[in-house]
Computed example of a mutant assay.
Amino acid sequence: MKILFVGDVVGRLGRDMLDNHLHRLVSKFKPQVTIVNGENSTDRGRGISEKIYKSFMQLGADVVTLGNHAFDNDEIFDFIDHSKKLVRPANFPAATTPGEGLIYLNINQIKLAVINLQGTALMQNLDDPFVLAEELVNQARHHTPNIFMDFHAETTSEKQAMAHFLDGKVSAVIGTHTHVQTNDARILPGGTAFLTDVGMTGPLDSIIGVRKEDVLRRYLTKLPTRFNVQETGPSILSACIIDIDEDTGKAKSIKNVVIRDDQPFFD
């Protein structure tokens, strides 16, 4: 089973990149499952709308994962419970948070579990992601050995720790949130594919998607500054392709994918 995972789609430029290139990636790599992180996909780069979610599905996404901005667009409360392919971090408080943190897909009679978790190092104080990861993985393994996790976390160490904690128990742990693709894609000793961060799909001439002048003003003046998404200029699409032995759930390969306006994609 091949899985194509596209990193954090940011704003209009990110949506345009997905619109322009997703079908080409699918044509080249022929994944059975396409997963897109959409937690920054509104024009202001915070949250997701139902229209955007449906547009990702129409483009060919099978699942959309989220992260710390999952609920920043209030509209999500109107559609998350009936959007069965939308996955939010499972460690938001279960009693008060709508949506699901674990879903299953049936792909040619093979089941794939998709888990979304959020880290807590330098982030919100949510439920312990390691405790919940163990619970969810044990639950999923009753149904399938094929388990994909989007771990939305700030620190490299927490992402690596999660991958090693789950090595041999899941097919892949792929990091999101920091918006810069890392160069450490590998298969861990137990057979789990890992990438610290898959990177961002959105404005390249920016600081992780935000206008440079906004971020620089914050650093130089220490004053409160509104961060606005960069809306013009070159763009980037960041992704990875993972090949899984669907009988064992072990990863066979993982490959980084990058498309930039100055590095066009070739079929």
Results as ranks from 00 to 15, higher is better:
62 D>Y: 07
63 V>L: 09
46 R>K: 14
19 D>R: 15
44 R>L: 15
52 I>G: 00
86 L>Q: 06
48 I>E: 00
14 G>V: 12
42 T>C: 05
71 F>E: 06
96 T>Q: 08
82 H>C: 10
34 T>K: 13
15 R>T: 02
30 K>M: 12
10 V>Y: 06
82 H>K: 15
67 G>W: 07
71 F>Q: 10
95 A>W: 12
46 R>C: 10
37 N>D: 14
83 S>I: 05
84 K>S: 06
52 I>M: 03
83 S>L: 09
21 H>A: 06
64 V>C: 01
71 F>I: 13
59 L>W: 14
84 K>T: 10
48 I>M: 04
90 A>H: 10
45 G>N: 05
65 T>G: 09
71 F>A: 11
38 G>F: 07
51 K>I: 02
62 D>C: 04
85 K>F: 03
34 T>R: 08
17 M>V: 08
70 A>H: 09
18 L>G: 08
88 R>Y: 09
43 D>R: 04
49 S>E: 02
80 I>C: 03
91 N>I: 07
55 S>H: 12
92 F>C: 04
70 A>S: 14
71 F>P: 04
66 L>A: 14
42 T>S: 07
49 S>H: 02
74 D>H: 12
67 G>I: 12
84 K>C: 05
88 R>G: 05
80 I>N: 04
81 D>N: 14
87 V>N: 10
44 R>T: 14
57 M>Q: 13
90 A>G: 12
24 R>K: 15
89 P>L: 14
44 R>P: 00
49 S>C: 02
72 D>P: 00
83 S>W: 04
38 G>Y: 06
58 Q>C: 03
10 V>I: 15
59 L>R: 14
88 R>I: 14
39 E>S: 06
78 D>L: 15
27 S>G: 10
27 S>K: 15
15 R>L: 04
42 T>Q: 03
32 Q>S: 13
39 E>D: 04
57 M>N: 02
56 F>D: 00
20 N>G: 09
18 L>V: 15
53 Y>S: 00
80 I>D: 02
61 A>L: 05
97 T>I: 05
60 G>R: 08
90 A>Y: 11
78 D>Q: 14
52 I>Y: 05
55 S>G: 02
16 D>V: 11
83 S>D: 00
95 A>M: 11
22 L>M: 09
11 G>C: 07
53 Y>R: 00
31 P>T: 09
75 E>W: 13
47 G>D: 04
49 S>G: 01
64 V>T: 11
64 V>R: 01
53 Y>P: 01
63 V>K: 05
98 P>L: 07
75 E>K: 04
